[in-house]
Design a protein around this nucleic acid. Structure first.
Lengths: 349, 349
DNA sequence: AGCTTTCATGGGAGCGCTCCCGCAGTGTTT
DNA sequence: AAACACTGCGGGAGCGCTCCCATGAAAGCT
């Protein structure tokens, strides 16, 4: 085996560039890092040498001295199945990755489902390894944000925990979220306006901000319309389609006279559609269904699904914006960003 | 602003661990790297010091001297939309990421759609930045594999180009693929056996191995059953649902008497289902439809979709296995792995 | 006992870079 | 003409680690 100390000849160092350009190491470094303290002549010589030699700075060496790594981690506290199964993640990752492309930052991808993975992750989420962390799909009891804050690592959450719903300005960590309460209110009010009498909801997990908020929005809207909320009108799922199926069955068993359902996300709405069809009910004639996400699948179901639209990709972009500012030590305009939603009406209700 | 040269006090260095354990730097390094050349007493002292101080090795420093980075890049030559929209990618990334968790390797995620991104990517895909590269969704004319081979970077392809179909052992680069020809043959033969007379196919892009191979499998099977293949029985898509819609319309226009369609992947089969329904044809009574992927959506369409199953997650795992061996300089058993497929029969045909 | 071999150990060198100090050269002010 | 400021530049120091060599102690051999 070849000695590891041997450098592959193709990769020139700063020093070699300096020699080729006939200047000192410092000058090359200044050019590479865009310092204005370089004469045009020197700058040009260096740039030519860089092009000639195909010089690319060594990240490790740079990281060692600057204590920056120019990389951020995207941590998803969820199993891979869910991450990639759900269009929501697809959209947000799309936004993140496209936005990151405009910065010098590189993206680490880390799923944290098993505890072994979490331990390992823990070791790697330090200033030595990443400059910042994007957290997705956080559950309320997750210790990660506190841990990272402790390490003084910039963090931005996608979504927020239930405790940050009331007073976002008091949130201990930056986040980007949509107005889930407002969105759920929109959906519910829409069903009321369509003259539905017995409006049920399939709520999300109550240990996640989105789950809590969307249920709160439903309750709000019902109260605003002076509709009483029977507890049998509420069933809980975990944002997966399967859980939507189970929840819809529960609802039908408890209140067979239901004529509308607001599901806290699209996959659960899909499950509901399936159960309703199997039970012989027509959508939207017998039961109206409204989802939340306005994901691609919403327009592909039969009937197509009315759903609350959230600007998912923009969420990803905003997360990166916030994090990049933090990393550079720039005080962001606001420590958090809340984006709006609107209802997209289709055939299901 | 705080000077950047200041180390955050919480992160101890090797040297500090050595001092705490009362040994030299070398000994600590040996313990950390699992060298057997350490006395039990020293080892224990070092391990306690590491635990006490919460020492984590500095990746950058290590990378600088070893010329290894302990990270690999996953490059997807496709837009994010497609990557995350298609369940195929979800599965393969799942396999990759779970398999990577058992190695010391970290995963970089890189999409390469725009040319700007590709240029930037190019600069980063060097030995200095990653130890190896996983390539997904490669088009035949992509210069990346050659470029990476040139840089002496270990590469493993997910799927293969058309030129590697005939003689896989001559492939210039390692790959993991499924037996696409065999799978397509399975699907087509199944339709023949079901007594379908006019079997059409929606083929994938012909600049990708999977597209070419699945069409070849269809042709093979048709020939084997002495069915003539009218060129009007073949339409082409690009693996997206939309392209499936377009292709199906073409087929129906050219040959309205079609009674079966084999689509080269599930999303295109979905598009076909949609068009067939819109045209008033019943599936499977009037037209049978078979897809390829056996993705989650296959069991959710109406009617549920008969599809060729490929072990997607295992593909991801195999890719990592191959790459990790290469990185460690271990000669793998075979430079490529081809996995089997089987048909999952459902309602559509 | 005297020799060689083995083994654990400490620490120097150096990976490629940035930061910063000090120097020279030029321009500006008194 | 002297004093000063400023600007561009070279190169030393050092980031935290691994590799390897020299060292001394312990063990094995004749």
């Amino acid at each position: 085996m070849v000695s590891q100390r041997q450098r592959s000849p193709g990769r020139p160092t700063l020093e070699e560039v300096a020699a080729a350009a006939g200047v000192g190491r410092g000058t090359v470094s200044r050019v590479v890092n865009g310092s204005p303290q370089v004469s045009p002549a020197a700058k040009e010589a260096v740039e030519r040498a860089i092009a000639d030699l195909g010089y690319v700075p060594n990240r490790a060496a740079r990281a060692l001295v600057t204590q920056r790594t120019d990389s951020v981690a995207l941590v998803v506290s969820e199993s891979e199945d869910r991450v990639f199964g759900q269009p929501f993640f697809a959209g947000i990752i799309r936004g993140i990755s496209s936005s990151l492309a405009e910065t010098p930052l590189q993206l680490w991808l880390a799923m944290a489902q098993s505890s072994a993975e979490r331990v390992r992750l823990n070791l790697h989420l330090t200033r030595q390894h990443v400059d910042g962390v994007l957290l997705l799909s956080l559950h309320d009891d997750d210790p990660l944000p506190a841990l990272l804050a402790d390490r003084d690592l910039p963090v931005v959450l996608g979504g927020r925990t239930a405790s940050m719903l009331g007073t976002p300005e008091a949130a201990p960590v930056s986040f980007v979220d949509v107005d889930n309460v407002g969105g759920a209110r929109l959906a519910t009010t829409h069903l009321v306006a369509a003259d539905r009498r017995r409006i049920a909801t399939i709520a999300g997990p109550q240990d996640m901000g989105a789950g809590v908020a969307r249920l709160a929005g439903y309750r709000d809207a019902m109260a605003a319309e002076s509709r009483s909320v029977d507890s049998r009108l509420i069933a809980y799922g975990d944002f997966t389609e399967d859980s939507g199926i189970v929840a819809m069955r529960q609802l039908l068993a408890a209140r067979p006279d239901i004529d509308a359902v607001f599901a806290a996300n699209d996959p659960m709405a899909l499950g509901a559609l399936r159960v309703l069809r199997d039970s012989g009910r027509r959508v939207p004639e017998d039961v109206a269904v409204v989802g939340f996400d306005d994901s691609v699948i919403a327009s592909q179901t039969q009937p197509t699904l009315t759903s609350v639209h959230q600007p998912i990709e923009e969420m990803g972009r905003a997360m990166v914006r916030l994090l990049y500012d933090k990393i550079r030590g720039i005080q962001p305009d606001a420590p958090y960003i809340i984006l709006g939603t609107h209802l997209v009406e289709r055939d299901s209700g």
